[in-house]
Design a protein around this nucleic acid. Structure first.
Lengths: 229, 229
DNA sequence: CGAATAGTTGAGTAGTCTCAAAACAGGTGG
DNA sequence: CCACCTGTTTTGAGACTACTCAACTATTCG
């Protein structure tokens, strides 16, 4: 009796799952497009499929910051956005999948697999934010840049690859790392002169000395004493 | 007699809920206790009931940072902690409720109310982290302190109250705001001289000029020109 | 080609860090 | 009660980093 019930219920659930599936709504946005929360009231959940979306903030006198960046496969949920959360801006040409609140909740509810993945992504996002706070808090410009290069590699799933595409503009990287573009530029030349990285193009960075770069990022190198002239 | 009463009450609660309810395990920790993830393998979810837990990070040469602080009613989930996530340290005497992975998941699964609350808390945590990045990125010491005071008020649910208990030690506040304790101290005296705050004790800050403090926090005041001597 | 945007380089300044010492608070024991 | 200790906060003077503003180079695009 209980067995029959169990099987039947299970079958029904399976049938329901298979029968229902939200058709993903795909959208593209050009660089510098501002994604207004109001415009996404009906489809407030964005899953980035290509490109990058950044949360831009501006202080009263014009100082700019990018607090969080959403890269591929990361989820931006407009439902939980307060007024202080800044504005979402496309830092690259962006492709997103859009979900309505109901659809996304239903996906989560019907598939534990999906729910687990979502929870993991949420937690990862908080980890990135936490690490980013560490980068911003007490690191020097050159250490910040080293950290950024390594973070970029990690978030692009490049594994142990030594060639990292930065993709973002210098000014956006600077905003993200809490620096001025000029200071960032100087940090690039310093890393190059120290032989930790090499770059021919502006976009592509080759990591010449990975342990060195990692130590630099973690503040284990007193680079002042490794004199640069 | 007392036993009968207890059992009856317990049964009622059980019946009201979902016939199942995990007994919360409560624990206390002294200041500066380090909560090792390994020790919480069986009960990896901590809900802070009193005090504050901070994620401490240390750079190679000893520079310290606190990236995230968990205050009352916030959830620290050791399951999603990477190696880089720093160590969890009690910044105040702490009381926590502990949950096992199964219990917490079950609570979420059986009560949509609980699930919504959890999701909201997660999102709020990310918002705090995002705002914190903004504070760290480009703000001056005095602006950082103004931001911290307002953040403290907000997270203590003081509403429009003008008296804020900072509770944390100066050195922890400094670590959190990416400053040295000395610089923080100087920022305090500057805010006092500007008449934005007043404090008799070290712990208690009275906001004397709230709009002014808020403008300071948002970088709308060129406080250099409001000369301090 | 000229206009516009993006990135680099240079000189001077403002603000934070460093290190050292002094003031302050809280608890202990004589 | 005071002297003493430990730990925290404040104050001071000098060094150094990152910012500002300006000019310059490189690249893109009509």
């Amino acid at each position: 009796m209980t067995q029959v019930q169990y099987l039947t219920r299970s079958d029904l659930e399976g049938a329901q799952q298979a029968a229902w599936k939200p058709k993903p709504i795909i959208n593209n946005f050009a660089v510098d497009t501002v994604l207004d929360a109001e415009a996404f009231r009906k489809l407030p959940i964005l899953v980035v499929k290509q490109g990058a979306i950044g949360l831009q903030h501006m202080l009263g006198d014009g100082r700019q910051t990018i607090s969080v960046i959403y890269f591929e496969d990361e989820v931006l949920d407009f439902r939980h956005f307060g007024k202080v959360s800044g504005r979402a801006t496309c830092l690259l040409p962006v492709t997103v999948k859009l979900y309505s609140s109901d659809d996304y909740d239903r996906l989560q509810h019907e598939s534990t697999q999906f729910q687990i993945e979502h929870a993991t992504k949420q937690a990862r996002q908080l980890n990135y934010a936490s690490q980013h706070s560490v980068d911003l808090a007490r690191k020097s410009a050159i250490e910040k840049l080293a950290s950024f290069i390594l973070e970029s590699r990690k978030r692009q799933n490049l594994g142990r690859g030594l060639d990292v595409l930065l993709r973002l503009r210098r000014s956006d990287i600077a905003d993200y790392m809490g620096l001025r573009a000029e200071t960032l530029s100087r940090a690039f030349t310093k890393l190059k002169k120290l032989g930790l990285i090499a770059c021919d193009q502006t976009d592509l960075v080759h990591i010449s000395n990975e342990p060195g770069l990692r130590q630099m990022a973690n503040g284990k190198v007193n680079w002042m004493k490794t004199r640069i002239q």
